[in-house]
Design a protein around this nucleic acid. Sequence first.
RNA 1: GCCUUGGUGGUGGAAUUGGUAGACACGCGGGACUUAAAAUCCCGUGGGCAGCAAUGUCCGUGCGGGUUCAAUUCCCGCCCGAGGUACCA
Length: 930
Amino acid sequence: MEYNFNALDAKWQKYWVDRKTYKVSEDTGKPKYYVLDMFPYPSGAGLHVGHPLGYIASDIYSRFKRHQGFNVLHPMGYDAYGLPAEQYAIQTGQHPAVTTEQNIRRYREQLDKIGLSFDWDREIRTCDREYYRWTQWAFVQMFRSYYCYDARKARPIAELVAVFGRQGTKGLNVACSEELTFTAAEWNAKTEKEQQEILLNYRIAYLADTMVNWCPALGTVLANDEVSDGLSVRGGHPVEQRLMRQWCLRVSAYAQRLLDGLETVEWTESLKETQRNWIGRSEGAEIRFKLSAASSASNPSRKPEEQPGLLVFTTRADTVYGVTFMVLAPESEYVALLTVPEQKAEVDAYLASVKRRTERERIADRRVTGVFTGSYVVNPFSGKEIPVWISDYVLAGYGTGAIMAVPAHDSRDYAFARHFRLPVIPLIEGCDVSEESFDAKEGVMINSGVLNGLTVKEAIAKAKAYIAENAIGRVKVNYRLRDAIFSRQRYWGEPFPIYYRDGMPCAVDEADLPVCLPEVDRFLPTEKGEPPLGHAKGWTYRGYPLELCTMPGFAGSSAYYLRYEDPHNRRALVSPEANAYWRNVDLYVGGTEHATGHLIYSRFWNKFLYDLGVVADEEPFRKLINQGMIQGRSNFVYRIKGTNTFVSYHLREQYDTTEIHTDVNLVQNDILNIDAFRAWSPDYASAEFILEDGKYVCGWAVEKMSKSMYNVVNPDMIIAQYGADTLRMYEMFLGPVEQSKPWDTAGIEGVHRFLRKVWNLFVSREGKRDVSDEAPTAQELKTLHKTIRKVTADIENFSFNTAVSAFMICVGELQEQQCNKRRILEPFVILLSPFAPHIAEELWETLGHAESVTRAPYPVADEQYLTENSFTYPVSFNGKTRFTLELPVDMDAKTMEQTVLAHETAQKWLAGNPPKKIIIVPKKIINVVV
RNA sequence: GCCUUGGUGGUGGAAUUGGUAGACACGCGGGACUUAAAAUCCCGUGGGCAGCAAUGUCCGUGCGGGUUCAAUUCCCGCCCGAGGUACCA
């Protein structure tokens, strides 16, 4: 009976569906385990062989945990809103819902063929009304909340309104866009509209005029993580800065908690580091530099006590004596305040030139530019007068938009000082600033007044203390993390549950959610330049106009893991009971590309829901594994220029050739299938070949897997040819899950051969083999228990490639021992089933079991069969192994020494001298130092 | 520039965290079975030198040093690749 993998795949996949083998429900009698894959965006291209890598790994882990008696939640769904479907709709008129549905069907088909153990009854799609109802619901909660730093959590906005009515902004310690100051009386005197406008300054979901990344080609704004090098991540279109009124989420309020939370999760160090960088905490001080007497005299519009002074942020308060000039960002509000009339023309010209330059030009061209404002401020430490300049190397969006420049100890300030011939004052003993600045934070301070003689570290602390004592400024922590821009001028996304009354935003009643995405006849912006929802008829709520933007991609993916816990609940995102049982995700598997996007937003969103008391855990994903990308391995043929003749790889140097991609599916082990190549394209039908050793050898390279490079390998093809189990095991065998690697089908035979060997252990050519109930031999037991121990440890460590190796060794040994004993084969099948579930189910059945192998308890390694009574020691002299010696493990050290030294080879190496030292590492090595 | 990683045969990759480097697999070479092929099985396979041979011996984990009886592993200094991030003050 042959190993008919196609039939097995079909048989058992149907069995699992019919019996709902992988359906789970809350079962307090069992410990839970939640294994989650990052749900895919169903693109039109379908899955290639790289996509399932993480799914297979998490599936193996899920099945393993089930065998171990855990109640495993392992769901799957689709991140169904997104740009590609909408762009396709614009081009073809095909409704995004239709293409999305088609793509999902195709994904599902492909996923099913791999034999993944998802509970499909819990499937979610972000574009379902019943799903996005809860995305909108969460947004409404954010709209109705503000963030209180004292309580370290989100609170209802009504509380803040009460505080304002009682005491204004006095003693307020809350997250806001801009620090406002008003009294209770002032607040109470404001109109309803004015009050609403002020509240936007505090809401967690708020509307604000902000500089946004506007992508003209896509016709929408993008979040910071959706832009890279001034180009959109999706599509690579240019992005420009624009001031627009947009919905934002106050993610920055959670910066410290997002940072602290990283300490509590099991993620890779590199991913945590990426998030730390993105959050960008920096400890420093804000220092106020007052206007000089002359400058404030020439600025008579204000009384001296109202003179603004200049507030800067610095992490190097120790270098304050080295400040020789100040720099304002061109967009800074200070520019207008500090530019003197004589300099106005020059400053205006500079601002205009800066404005002309795009983000990309600024990145590409780092020439030093700037202009003097004409104003001077006073150094609060030294009392010196300092000129104020404007330059675009200072960013308006970070800190206060102004800096104190210390050219001796900052390379950017140094370049500026040299260009405009400003003085450079060295502050660290023995540093040389004649060629470049001294940026290192080490050394002893000089030229620094009260800080002289201190080390840099001490000086920073002392300067901060001085600033606080003398009320020059305050100690301050800054974060690089920006609020998330939450509006997209698009059709295919979640509508906002927001309508406008008198121009002010109001939340739709929770009872009226969801606000369903309306039908439109065109997916493009309206003539007035409104987003596509402007085409929708009757797009109103209680007679008021609804918001025309939709939410960004990350809206639906931020809390999806919670919805899987209670996917059909119509009363809540997740019931407290379901969440209390399933808690947060124990294992999350997905790519690193989401490090600064989804994984930040999701954590933020979850923390917000935690503040509301909706979820039980503050961090959504306890342990996270980043699967590597599978790259393509392209193949090349070499055409002699001007001919239709192709020369084999090693002979190509002798000719003038052009390298041409050939479809990897026409190539096996780098040998081209010539007939298939001729048939591939009419151009090559009459191609001639110059062979080596009768073969045409192709060149190869590792590239991104893509259609244009003809290196896409479709999992369906592999499954048809070798079966799902071979695909699963081979993907794991390829290397560590976390590592990126090229897909090379060449090695797949080895894994397939292994599965056939497994099959042959149970089934001979004639039919089923008889399974013996005889007691296993010591040898057989050793093979089994060694494998149990190794495979179990490997699964726990996510080292699936070595686990596959262990299986291969095991089967080799069982084959050699011609083992057909039930007490060996049964545990072996259970062990194998997470990796190769189809064959395992079939073999389990041949062993006479009626129920799925999925229910079988996981075997436990028994050390009793693994203990050795003797060990073969390598015996070294001065570190070089000279001979081996088999000794009983319980032999005492003295006897071992004597046995070793009595050996005839030992005599040769000792050459008559007594050994200086003998090192015995039990079960490892014996080393004699001569 | 900074941060995080990684560098091991012809190839993918192992090595219990300091203890026989190269497991397992691919590829390649040889052999068995077969009229032949496929399939299957067996043997060999890091490099050099010596030997008819079993074998012996030296060199080998990016490069250069160091610690140690012993280093792919630890320390110092470089080189290269991958990923993240950046006029962030």
